[in-house]
Every structure is written in C-alpha cells, then in structure tokens.
Design a protein around this nucleic acid. Structure first.
Length: 193
DNA sequence: GGTAGGATAAGCT
DNA sequence: GCTTATCCTACCA
C-alpha cells in the first residue's frame, strides 16, 4: 500500500488538533540513505507566544526559535540538556510560533538499525521518548527547518489502524503543567511512560 | 517496583 | 550563574 505525505494544509490548523491527528501516521527517516520508520503514538502541542512552555513564549524570536515561525509542515529540531535532540512538526501559519513535539513511536521498519543506534536497550525503549526516537532515527540539527513532506524526514498518511486517544498534561515542563496538551494512543506499549 | 543524581551545553538573566 | 519540552545508571525496596 502506497502512503503519501501529509500535506502542508494538514499542519496549517490549530496545534492541538494537529497533535491529536498526527497519532497513527508514520514517520519515515531516510537519513544517509538508510530507511527507518515508526508509527506516531505520543505527541504534545506547544502553542504560540501565550503558552508558557513554548520556546517562543512572549514572542521571543531568536536564532533558535526562528524555525517555529516558519512554514507549517517543516521540522523544528532543537538541542537540549547538553546532549539530546528533539523533533517537532511546525504548525498553524507563518509567523505564528507553534509546533507538535513527537514523543514516541511504535517501531515499524529498520529495527536492527534502531538497535545499533540506541545501544543496549529493550525494544520497548527504542523510540519511547523524544530524544530516544531522534537517536533511533538518526535525527540531528541537520534536519532543522527541512520539509516533512519530502527529503530525509517524512510523515506519511496512514488511516488504517483504529485506536482510542487519551489526553494528559505535558511531560517534563515546569510551567502550564495542567494544560491537557499531550495526546497518546491509549494503552500503546510504546509510550514514553 | 521506585527514585536520586549526574552527564553536558545552549540559551537565557 | 541558572534553567532546561531528557536519558541513563546506581541504588533501595
């Protein structure tokens, strides 16, 4: 079955809606010609200048956050805690800084390569966390600002699977801790926690 | 099963 | 100097 990329219009909508609707679709990495793929099972929304947990809170437009202000459907990849990369899909409209953090995948293809990249971890931890999935897929700052519709990183439509969605507060943040903006495939064994 | 502490650097005040 | 959209290991139960 042929899968096609989610279009720019898919991302040009309210961020929480994009976060919810990304669940079940497939993230494919073809970095350095090697294909690795997983189904998105956990996301979080970071919604613009009025969201205290968003990097662009207060409309802080800097070299780092510039990508968040870009075209919906590009990747925002940032570096944190001195050693980890995290992947987002930019949403809404140009000049409005919002994105969806991809927090966990169900591994679908290239699992041997994921194991080599991740080292000695059980399979359920291969892509269970935003930095873990970036390591498993080979994602770094080289992908920041790149389209998710073509090239090294793509998110492909897949509506075949049915599942229940659960909503919780976001993880690892210190402000706006009660905002229900984390979306998960309920009961998936591949979640970050 | 659980949690505390450390790694390690960009970006901010 | 302090914080951070994290992860791993060590240790305790």
């Amino acid at each position: 079955m042929k899968r096609t990329p989610l279009t720019g219009a898919f991302y040009a909508r309210p961020t929480a809606e994009v976060a919810r609707r990304l669940l079940g679709h497939v993230l494919v990495s073809r970095i350095r010609g090697r294909e690795v793929a997983g189904r998105i099972v956990e996301t979080e929304a970071y919604i613009g200048p009025h969201d205290p947990a968003c990097h662009a809170y207060g409309d802080r437009r800097t070299a780092r956050t510039e990508t968040l202000y870009g075209t919906p459907g590009i990747a925002y990849v940032y570096f944190t805690y001195g050693m980890h990369w995290c992947l987002n899909a930019v949403t809404e409209r140009v000049d409005y800084p919002a994105a969806v953090l991809i927090r966990a995948l169900e591994p679908l293809a290239g699992i041997e390569l994921m194991r080599r990249r991740r080292g000695t971890v059980p399979d359920h931890a291969l892509c269970a966390g935003p930095a873990r999935l970036c390591e498993a897929l080979g994602i770094t700052g080289a992908q920041n600002g790149r389209s998710l519709q073509r090239g090294d990183l793509r998110i492909l439509r897949d509506g075949r699977t049915r599942f229940r969605i659960a909503v919780t507060p976001r993880i690892g943040i210190t402000t706006a801790q009660d905002w229900p903006l984390r979306f998960v495939v309920a009961d998936s064994p591949w979640l970050s926690r």
